[in-house]
Computed example of a mutant assay.
Amino acid sequence: MNYTLHQLQVFLKVSEKQSITLAAEELFLTQPAVSIQLKNFQDQFPIPLTEVIGRKLFITEFGKEIAEAAQKILDEVHAINYRTLAYQGNLSGRIKISVVSTGKYLMPFFLTDFMRQHEGLELIMDVTNKLKVVRALEKNEIDFALVSVLPEHLQIDRVELMENKLFFVGGTQEELKKSHSKRHLFETRPLIYREQGSATRNAMEAFISENNFKTIKKMELTSNEAVKQAVVSGLGYSIMPLIGIKNEIKNNDLRIVKVSGLPISTTWNLIWLKSKKLSPAATAFLEYLNEEKEAIIQKHFSWIKEY
Rank of each mutant, 00 (worst) to 15 (best):
Arg255Phe: 13
Ile256Val: 15
Lys214Thr: 10
Leu278Val: 04
Leu221Ala: 08
Gly261Lys: 11
Leu289Arg: 01
Ser260Pro: 05
Gly197Ile: 00
Trp272Asp: 02
Ala226Thr: 05
Glu210Ala: 08
Ser238Ala: 13
Asn202Glu: 07
Glu205Phe: 02
Asn251His: 11
Phe207Asp: 04
Asn251Arg: 13
Glu205Gln: 10
Thr188Ser: 15
Glu248Gln: 14
Glu225Thr: 12
Phe207Lys: 09
Thr215Lys: 08
Leu242Gly: 03
Ile192His: 08
Leu235Ile: 01
Glu210Tyr: 03
Lys274Ala: 05
Asp253Gly: 12
Met219Thr: 05
Gly197Leu: 00
Leu254Arg: 15
Pro241Asp: 01
Thr188Asn: 15
Ala281His: 04
Gln229Ser: 07
Ser238Glu: 02
Thr267Val: 08
Pro190Glu: 07
Lys250Arg: 14
Ile239Tyr: 09
Trp268Ser: 09
Tyr193Ile: 05
Lys228Ser: 14
Val257His: 14
Arg194Ala: 14
Lys217Arg: 14
Lys293Met: 02
Lys218Met: 11
Ala230Gln: 07
Met204Cys: 08
Ile216Asn: 15
Arg194Pro: 07
Ile208Val: 09
Ala206Met: 07
Asn202Pro: 00
Glu292His: 13
Trp268Glu: 11
Arg201Thr: 01
Thr188His: 14
Ile239Ser: 13
Ile271His: 09
Ser275Asn: 06
Gln196Met: 10
Thr222Met: 12
Val259His: 10
Phe285Glu: 01
Ala226Lys: 14
Trp268Cys: 10
Glu248Arg: 11
Ala203Tyr: 03
Gly261Pro: 06
Leu242Lys: 02
Leu262Arg: 11
Asn269Cys: 11
Glu220Lys: 11
Val259Trp: 06
Thr267Arg: 14
Lys250Asn: 11
Phe213Lys: 01
Phe207His: 08
Ala203Leu: 12
Ser260Asn: 12
Arg255Trp: 11
Gln229Arg: 14
Ile249Asn: 14
Ala206Pro: 04
Glu225Tyr: 09
Glu210Lys: 10
Leu221Glu: 05
Gly234Phe: 04
Ala284Cys: 00
Gly236Ser: 00
Ala282Phe: 10
Phe213Met: 03
Ile249Gly: 13
Leu270Thr: 03
